[in-house]
Design a protein around this nucleic acid. Structure first.
Length: 475
RNA sequence: GGCCCCUUCGUCUAGUGGUCCAGGACGUCAGGUUCUCAUCCUGAAGAUCGCGGGUUCGACUCCCGCAGGGGUCACCA
């Protein structure tokens, strides 16, 4: 049994979205499960499409999700370099071997001529096959023309760890380009050489490569390479459920989710369970469980739609599961401006009150602002309240005066406050819906808040009474 | 158009011939938890298993056809 070595091989052409990161996650899980290596490789053979800074961005995305690679451009490894543009000598060496064996030849046509062949095929409603135009006496390859693979078309059957048994006819095989006229290899050629030289055991990649697989098999044969285990992962579809999730259609950068305060664990859990399950009814998985339970053959063959509401739920579940100290550490960048002067201890008290209503950290400001600053008295909160609007302001004022008197005598522990609120209920003969709403609105000026007694306890006596006074004056 | 892949509640899915007039989760709706929001709990609606044939005593599960969706047919990956 060969050691398991998986790879994630993005081209540095931008950021990583949820669909891309899932392929990386699966590769990482397979490696970790087997105690193998997870390799990062940059496929930068298209210099025109390269985006400045995307290499760092890609690495950061991977690491933020906890997908640490064992070998890669930034950390090296014994099979480097891990950047295709630095491996040109290798591609040319193998290309020369193919030429010598009569299995590769120079493409004498201009791009315009090839394009014309393509259009003719299209017009005839036939698939375009370059090999139908294969030159009988190609010139010697001097590096200024593309180098093409001289294919040997035939039927193929192969096994895919996700898709199962696959097959394709000889018509799927063509003379594809190995080396472009700029001297760089195509993906089709380079990845095969790299995977061989880096001793990659599993190729886990997106569905867009399925149609090329017969070509690759043909090339493996010509090169006399062993074919790695193949696993084709279906695309994640956008919310419209049609097209694959793509940057062009506004798919979010995974780092954007972290900027909004999604937890790494939730994201990992969500992405893994999009199109994969362990056969039980378990929904929440920690990374270690994913490593233990993941298997390629339980990955769905159909593409799954990206459902953000499920991610939101999952993130809330993970937030609720964190202990307070951990939650506080993670949420530090998300507190509102108004909290700047507040102590860590105070903020932790606030956090414990909102923990169960928090779905992602970017909500913290709107959930907590009133804990840090006196909001202006908004009579609409009272006049628009379905319980309170039935009362005259004078009546409400009387109720609030009674409440104030009781609160003035409280030690402001949550227990004492709860007790006093109960007594007030009896004394005034009012329903909680009336009395509590009134006090809550007066002391927070927020449309919603955590439980009344706890909120008052955290706000403290001085602040609570000051706000109640402000409301009394407005009534 | 050729080739290839896919098709179970709105969404993610369980399901490998009878235990499925289809189970779970998200979402939605209703009720409960002394106020709001959220959590939590309970309940409800929601899939004639894409359609049509067959095989079988019996099919979501096997076979054939069809339709729909997707991928691909680049000197992009």
């Amino acid at each position: 049994m060969k050691p398991v070595r998986t790879r994630f091989a993005p081209s540095p052409t931008g950021y990583l979205h949820v669909g891309g990161i899932r392929t990386a996650l699966f590769a990482w899980l397979v490696a970790r499960q087997a105690g193998g290596e997870f390799v990062l490789r940059f496929e930068d053979t298209d210099k025109k499409r390269e985006v400045e800074g995307s290499r760092e961005h890609l690495i950061k995305s991977l690491h933020t999700l906890g997908l640490k690679h064992d070998e890669g451009p930034d950390i090296g490894g014994q099979f480097g370099p891990y950047v295709q543009s630095e491996r040109l000598a290798s591609y040319h060496k193998w290309a020369q071997m193919l030429i010598d064996a009569g299995k590769a030849y120079a493409d004498p046509y201009t791009p315009e001529q090839v394009q014309q062949f393509r259009e003719e095929a299209q017009k005839a409603k036939k698939p375009f096959l370059y090999r139908n135009h294969r030159p009988t006496d190609p010139p010697k390859w001097d590096g200024t023309m593309p180098l093409r693979f001289k294919s040997e078309p035939k039927d193929y059957q192969w096994h895919d760890a996700v898709m199962g048994d696959m097959h394709a006819g000889a018509e799927a095989i063509d003379d594809f380009i190995l080396i472009k006229s700029d001297g760089y290899p195509t993906y089709n050629f380079a990845h095969i050489i790299d995977d061989r030289e880096m001793q990659i055991s599993h190729i886990i990649r997106g569905q867009e490569f399925i149609a090329s697989q017969p070509n690759y098999l043909n090339l493996y044969e010509a090169l006399e390479f062993e074919v790695p285990i193949l696993a084709t992962v279906p695309h994640i579809l956008g919310p419209d459920g049609k097209k694959k999730l793509s940057k062009r259609d506004g798919a979010k950068d995974v780092l954007d989710y972290f900027r909004e305060g999604y937890l790494q664990e939730a994201m990992l859990n969500f992405i893994a369970s999009l199109g994969w399950n362990d056969g039980t009814e378990q929904e929440i998985f920690i990374a270690q469980e994913l490593i233990e339970k993941f298997s390629l053959d339980r990955v769905q063959r159909a593409g799954a739609k990206f459902d953000e509401s499920r991610l939101l739920w999952m993130n809330g579940t993970w937030i609720r599961g964190l202990n307070l100290g951990e939650l506080y550490e993670r949420s530090k960048d998300f507190w509102p401006e108004s909290s700047r002067q507040a102590s860590d201890d105070y903020k932790k008290q606030v956090l414990s009150l909102i923990q169960e209503r928090l779905k992602y950290f970017a909500e913290i400001p709107q959930l907590t602002d009133f804990f840090f600053t006196d909001l202006p008295v908004d009579m609409q909160l009272i006049d628009g309240n379905k319980q309170l609007k039935k009362f005259e302001h004078a009546e409400l004022k009387g109720l609030l005066e009674q409440a104030k008197a009781s609160l003035e005598a409280s030690d402001f522990s949550a227990a004492d406050l709860a007790e006093r609120l109960n007594v007030l209920l009896e004394q005034t003969g009012q329903k909680p819906g009336v009395l509590f709403s009134l006090i809550r609105i007066a002391s927070t000026q927020a449309p919603s808040s955590p439980g009344l007694a706890e909120t008052l306890a955290v706000l403290g006596q001085e602040t609570s009474l000051r706000r109640i006074d402000a409301t009394l004056q407005a009534l």
